[in-house]
Every structure is written in C-alpha cells, then in structure tokens.
C-alpha cells in the first residue's frame, strides 16, 4: 500500500501528535471503511467454496483459479477499450475546457456567470432521463417517423467518448476556472504590457503555473470515465469496457463470488492505484478553488 508523504509544511494540520486513543480510533475507522475493498481483494484468491465460508478466513493459502478463469476470457479488449475511452474523452475534455475556463476566469466575457451555470446545469440532467433519445439518435436509422437522422454511433466507442466528454466537461470547466482564478493578475498584466500574444500567455505563463490543477482535473475525468457503467451498458456492445467485463461473472446459478471478486479487483485496480498516487491533487482539485 502506498504511504504518502504527509509532512508538508504543516498548514492547518495540528503540529502536535494526537493522543494514542485518537490514533487507535482513526485506525479502527480506517480499517472498517477499507474492509469491503480488502475482503473483495482477498476473496479473489479463494476457492468458490471458501468464498462463502463463515467465519471468513483472512489468512489462507491463496489459489489462482479465479484469475485463471478471469484471464480465460480475453480481457485485453475490455481494458484497451476502457483505456481508450477514458484517455480520449479526457483529452477532449481538456481541449474544450481549458480555453473555456481560461476565458471565463481571465477574460470575463459578458454573462460569464450564466455560461458557467449553464455548464454545471448540464451535469444535473440524469443520464437515465435521456437514454431513449440517445439510443434513437445513436442508432443507424434515427427516428424516421419524426424525420430525425441517426448517427450510427450505437455500440461504438466513439459514441461513448462523446458522452463521457459531455459528462466530464462541466466539472472540468468548473474546476479549471477556479484554478485560473488563482493566477495573480499582476503577472498577466505584466505579460500583456510586454505584448505577449495569447498563445504565449496561455502556454508559457499561465498553464505551467496551474499544472497541478490540470493534473487534478484530468484525473477526475479519467476516474469518472473509467468507472462509468450505465451509459456503456445501454449504448455500447457487451464487449465494450471494463465494467461490462466485470459483470460477466454474475450468474444466476452456482457460486460466483470468488470469480466476481477477482474480476472486480482487476477492474478497480488501475483507478485505485492512480487515486492513491494522486491523493494530494485530489484534495486540492475537489475543493475546486473554495480554498482561497
């Protein structure tokens, strides 16, 4: 498990070490919260019969039979599809959100607040509410009765990339705007007085200053895209992304917990590792500029 460097110039964190009772309580709470993840991980290395055994064994001789079964299905396409949709949609999110947030924060176009609220309001719409129209629009035929053309995106990764981009765009605009807000105005003014062009101002001065914010925003977008189940389940083929791979091991007859645990572990590991490594950025990123 990753231990993270926490001894930063202790801003806000109490400098004195907490009492042993505090430490013990914190550890107990942490272990309880973490337990389902640990248990899922361990079950992946048990036989199906041992997986339903009570009391549960936390120390046991591991078996790799579940992973053999899981690897028996070719998982590479699923992971490749998830990787492609997550990274490509995040790329487009950043491509669209960076200039937009940049302008909202530093150029303040008219009605910038309305624009910002429009973006965030698109995130309020439940995907389930538009799943049928999306299905119709994505299908090859559209809706001939109403004369709506079909885009032929049903069951394609392109379709998912478009939806994931739209899904993450509001959050990205929101987060990035708050990071751009933190850029000191005098630096910008100085650059402008010196006659710096917009690309130079953006790429050589501002973006490097907020690179942690860029990383945090991209991470959030990747996490949400990788973990997305509902749209992929309804609009993409059953062989599409990692969540589809995982649910394959849910069966109505016989024991499947151990194999499901193994496939779940594989499905969550990339994002869990990424999140562990990027904890500091997540804390900063999610506070979205409320820290100021």
């Amino acid at each position: 498990m990753a231990t993270l460097p926490i001894r930063r110039a202790g801003r806000g964190v109490s400098r004195e070490t907490a009492s042993p009772l505090w430490a013990i309580s914190a550890w107990i709470v942490g272990l309880i919260v973490f337990f389902p993840v640990l248990y899922m991980f361990l079950t992946g290395f048990k036989s199906e019969n041992a997986a339903v055994e009570l009391p549960p064994r936390l120390i046991f001789w591991p078996t790799f039979e579940n992973y053999d079964a899981v690897f028996g299905i070719n998982f590479v396409p699923f992971f490749r599809n998830s990787l492609v949709t997550s990274l490509v949609s995040t790329f487009f999110v950043m491509l669209l959100a960076i200039p937009c947030a940049y302008a909202l924060a530093l150029y303040r176009p008219k009605k910038w607040k309305d624009i910002l609220f429009f973006f965030i309001s698109t995130r309020f719409l439940p995907a389930a509410g538009v799943i049928v129209p999306l299905y119709v629009l994505f299908s090859p035929v559209g809706d001939p009765v109403l004369g709506v053309p079909g885009l032929g995106l049903l069951g394609t990764l392109q379709g998912l990339v478009i939806l994931y981009t739209a899904m993450n765009l509001p959050i990205a605009v929101w987060m990035l705007r708050s990071f751009f807000e933190e850029v000191p105005r005098d630096i910008l003014d100085a650059a402008r007085v010196d006659g710096a062009s917009l690309p130079r101002e953006m790429f050589q001065i501002v973006l490097p200053m907020i690179s942690p914010g860029l990383v945090a925003t991209a991470f959030i977008a990747i996490i949400f895209a990788w973990n997305e189940f509902f749209l992929a389940y309804n609009l993409a083929p059953k062989e599409s992304t990692v969540p589809m791979f995982m649910v394959r091991f849910v069966t109505s007859e016989g024991l499947f917990w151990a194999k499901l645990a193994a496939s779940s572990t594989m499905a969550v590991i990339p994002i869990v590792l990424l999140g562990w490594i990027a904890q500091r950025q997540l804390v900063r990123g999610l506070s979205m500029g409320a820290v100021k």
């Binding site: 231990t3 460097p5 964190v13 109490s14 070490t17 709470v29 993840v37 969550v268 999140g275």
Partner: peptide
Amino acid sequence: HRFPGRGIVRTMLITPFLIM
C-alpha cells in the same frame, strides 16, 4: 491530526471513492 500511520489511514478512507 498527526498520528503514526496517518497517511495510510487517509489512503484507506479515500479508497471507496475510487472503487467502480
């Protein structure tokens, strides 16, 4: 608050958010 293993506890507490 500071205590031994604080980073590990924080990591454990964050993890559910990362789970699919």
